[in-house]
Amino acid sequence: MSGGVDSSVAAHLLLEAGHHVIGVFMRHGHQSPAVCDLGDAPASAELPIVRLDHKQGCCTAADAEDARRVADRLQIPFYAIDLNAEFGQIMDYFAAEYAAGRTPNPCVQCNNWIKFGKLFDYADSVGAEYVATGHYARLQTIDGQPALVRGIDDAKDQSYVLFGIQRPYLQRMMLPVGEYRKPAIRELATEVGMNVADKKDSQEICFVTSGRYDEFVRHRREGESVPGDMVTTSGEVVGTHQGIEGFTVGQRKGLGVALGERKFVVRIEPDTHRVVLGDRNELGRAELTASECNWLTEVPVAEPQRGLAQIRYNAPAAPARFTRLEGDRLQVTFDEPQFAVAPGQAVVCYDGPRVVGGGWID
Score class of each variant (00 low, 15 high):
276 V>W: 13
260 G>R: 00
33 P>G: 09
311 I>C: 02
250 G>A: 03
102 R>S: 10
89 Q>E: 13
124 D>F: 07
61 A>M: 14
208 V>I: 15
59 C>T: 08
206 C>N: 01
340 A>K: 09
97 E>V: 04
226 V>G: 01
91 M>P: 01
98 Y>L: 13
222 E>I: 05
282 E>S: 09
284 G>V: 03
308 L>S: 03
306 R>Y: 06
202 S>H: 03
354 R>T: 12
250 G>T: 11
160 Y>P: 01
151 G>M: 03
27 R>G: 15
2 S>F: 06
148 L>P: 01
201 D>Q: 08
293 C>H: 05
259 L>C: 07
221 R>K: 11
100 A>F: 03
4 G>H: 09
131 V>D: 04
360 W>S: 05
10 A>G: 14
324 R>I: 05
329 R>V: 03
302 A>Q: 12
249 V>A: 07
175 L>H: 02
116 F>P: 04
235 G>N: 06
359 G>T: 10
73 R>V: 04
231 V>E: 04
159 S>Q: 05
161 V>E: 15
240 T>D: 10
132 A>N: 09
43 A>C: 00
360 W>H: 05
148 L>V: 08
174 M>Y: 05
161 V>H: 07
131 V>Q: 07
219 H>Q: 11
47 L>T: 08
44 S>Y: 12
14 L>D: 04
91 M>T: 07
333 T>H: 12
210 S>M: 14
201 D>I: 02
267 R>M: 07
216 F>M: 06
216 F>N: 03
213 Y>Q: 07
24 V>M: 08
37 D>V: 11
95 A>V: 06
147 A>R: 14
273 H>I: 11
260 G>C: 06
230 M>Q: 11
330 L>V: 04
132 A>Y: 06
279 D>A: 11
348 V>P: 00
